[in-house]
Design a protein around this nucleic acid. Structure first.
Lengths: 147, 147
DNA sequence: GACGCGCCTTTCCATCGTGGGAAGGTCAAG
DNA sequence: CTTGACCTTCCCACGATGGAAAGGCGCGTC
């Protein structure tokens, strides 16, 4: 199975398959001797699907590395898997809370804004006040999404 | 006022001040002729505070470019400001919903996981099923946070 | 006058996962 | 033999931020 076929079978783009190999998330694929083309089997495709599902739940490549090795280890304690999942949930909740705080603040400001031809605008007034986010009981931290 | 002073006065790192100048978010600062040091005044510091506050509400540099020009335009219609804010709120809500869906799914799976020495684990079982996220009524898209 | 410290300057690199594109090899069908 | 579909590697870009290197300038101190 060539990379394009594996890509269609797994839903992971060929680009990403090569990337996952490069960063060590998956073992380097076998290569056809004539071609130097990568070749994949059903097991590889299952791994790719696992990765895709984990990515869709927001796990980072590092976390997936750990999840994959637990998956392969038939003697794993489910405790370890649960720990990774719970930690990820906590991260998600943290980011959600930050973004929720931003959205709440902005909804409030927008609700106070006439939104017509006139220039007066509580949104700009708030930004211009330049207060640090913690200053008025708002708790949104500076960097809510990954950067 | 040198960049370090402006940084402390505004809460924006010197690094970021140079970056904002580079990408055109702020006008290039005046330069001392001897030094070639940037020099800032209170107005610049106010702009930097505006930017910091906007960043803390999750606005992108592009959005802040627009907000700044509206801020400077005393004849702006508040409608335009509100539109930017509302659109940003919608983006935030979208991302929040995606992450909420991930967290919900993971909380459910984790709740079903014994989390002990035994290897059986519904979390891994779910990942191994490799279903596309839309397949079982879950709606989490693939890329919830900025990348 | 020499030295060190602190500040400034620019430039390059890394993050994280993903897509885009170039330049070139391989293969099967027409 | 050509065309087109596939594969390969390598480089670049994103966004906002921090880090580090290498060097210039100014002030205070010996």
């Amino acid at each position: 199975m060539n990379i394009g076929h594996a890509s269609r079978a797994s839903g992971v783009s060929a680009k990403m398959i090569r990337y996952y190999e490069q960063v060590g998330l998956i073992r380097p694929a076998e290569r056809s001797e004539a071609n130097n083309y990568r070749s994949f089997d059903e097991r590889n495709v299952n791994e790719l699907r696992f990765i895709r599902r984990a990515r869709s739940l927001g796990f980072s490549v590092d976390e997936i590395t750990n999840l994959l090795s637990l998956w392969r280890d038939r003697a794993r304690p489910s405790r370890d898997v649960k720990a990774i999942a719970d930690q990820h949930v906590a991260e998600l909740e943290g980011r959600i809370a930050e973004m929720q705080a931003m959205a709440d603040t902005l909804r409030h400001l927008s609700g106070c804004c006439a939104g017509d031809d006139r220039p007066d605008c509580p949104i700009l007034a708030d930004l211009a006040s330049g207060d640090p986010p913690a200053g008025r009981g708002r708790r949104a931290a500076a960097r809510p999404f990954g950067g």
